[in-house]
Design a protein around this nucleic acid. Structure first.
Length: 214
DNA sequence: ATCCCGAGGG
DNA sequence: CCCTCTGGAT
């Protein structure tokens, strides 16, 4: 790992020592469901929904008995609930029919599941099975570009570049820290550069002197 | 208005 | 690559 990257990781570790997955989850199956639900909404809201949902339906077997209408009723307060409910219904049956009722552990298998893309697959692999992975969401994408960890034009290329430029053992942690940084300081619109401990390592800061775009 | 730890389809 | 899908918070 390059010296600059190592310094960035060290600063992130000091700044966000508690960076972690904030979705509540017990079993891998439950985190998979929670992660599918989390797209374009907040973890807080998903946690409120899953707390009630998993109390009534805790396992795949329970969900195989549910109807799409019942599921929609539970997740109605979350955005995109129709497509999420539809995807989850397909996900349940595919888990049962093609994966023996178990959550698969590979990118190829996970992304076959309806509603599961690279981001969700990486979250499941790293958080459920301790497989080093970098899930690139909008935060990781933006922050990586600004810091120069991975200057890429698509999330998939950013994922590849980060895996090359960072030690495997910090992948999962780096993923969480970059998300925390994106949410706390390195906002899309108005990044708080003046408060940022990484500004001296940041290409974005160098280019505009830390003046937030209006 | 803009954003939320996206995914699928065109 | 770009658009849409959704509702709630700020």
């Amino acid at each position: 790992m390059k010296k600059k990257n190592r310094e960035i990781i060290e600063i992130l570790e000091r700044t966000y020592p508690d960076a972690k997955c904030e979705l509540d989850h017990g079993t891998p199956f439950q985190l998979l469901v929670a992660t599918v639900l989390s797209a374009q909404t907040t973890d807080k809201k998903v946690n409120e929904v899953t707390k009630v949902l998993f109390e009534k339906y805790g396992t795949l077997v329970d969900f195989l008995e549910i109807t799409q209408d019942e599921l929609e009723e539970h997740i109605r307060v979350i955005g995109l609930y129709k497509s999420k409910a539809k995807n989850l219904m397909g996900l349940f049956s595919m888990l049962q029919d093609e994966f023996g009722g178990e959550v698969p552990k590979t990118m190829e298998e996970l992304t076959r599941l309806p509603g599961v893309g690279r981001k969700t697959a990486n979250v499941v692999m790293s958080n459920c099975f301790d497989i080093p992975a970098i899930a690139v969401d909008t935060h990781v994408f933006r922050v990586s570009n600004r810091l120069g960890l991975a200057k890429e034009k698509t999330p998939e290329k950013t994922e590849e570049a980060l895996m090359k430029s960072l030690d495997r053992k910090v992948w999962t942690k780096a993923h969480h820290m970059l998300i925390f940084h994106g949410r706390r300081l390195c906002h899309a619109r108005k990044p708080q550069c003046s408060e940022c401990p990484l500004k001296l390592h940041c290409d974005y800061y160098k280019e505009n002197g830390g003046i937030s775009a209006s």
